[in-house]
Amino acid sequence: MPILQLNNIETYYGAIQALKGISMDVGKGEIVTLIGSNGAGKSTTLKSISGLAKVKNGSIIYKDKDITNRPPHETTLLGLAHVPEGRRIFAQLTVKENLQMGAYSVKGKDIIQERMETVFSYFPRLKERLNQKGGTMSGGEQQMLAIGRALMMQPEVLMLDEPSMGLAPIIVEQIFEIILQLNSMGITILLIEQNAYQALSIAHRGYVIQNGAIVLSGTGSELIENEQIKEAYLA
């Protein structure tokens, strides 16, 4: 039984159809990746799930509940965390305030403090920079903050939109390491990447999206070996 299921999702930006019937599912505890080139509809798929983009047709089922077109402040409450593309941390807020915003719906100072400690155990750098403005940090630190902020919600499903974008290879390595760790703690991961090889190498399963439609799917290792994919994304 998948924890998250997309049935024939169609999403439009004005008159332009960005998603032309996306169907995919994510099993509990899996790492699933969605790969594809720029403008294929990867981010739109995540936005449709979290409620940032309005779905015109189709349905999204999360834990047996239809969550199609629920607003983002509700889907996140259900346990779906969305780390947006480009990190989008609150640049003028301190690291601490950014993390507190992640736990906006959480009541109780002790619980928030506890979760913050958990985040620091993954990203010790954030603890050092607690009172620094988010916008003054390096790209890698900002990505850590963006993921840490999402972890403050204690999500069941963590959706990551291009976490490797613009980062040095060594930082990307670290981020993927953390993703694997989080997954081993039981968090389901839905990962969007242009960096297809790296994503497929840690994913249980993958989907390939092209022009708003899924063109291929399979296990991570199957897709890595696939000739078409090698040609299109791994060259």
């Binding site: 940032l52 996140t76 989008r88 640049a91 807020l93 906006y104």
Partner: peptide, 15 residues
Amino acid sequence: RAVSLDRETASLMSI
């Protein structure tokens, strides 16, 4: 302040 800075991302914080 978070909503002032980035409304969309703020909504992803359950705000």
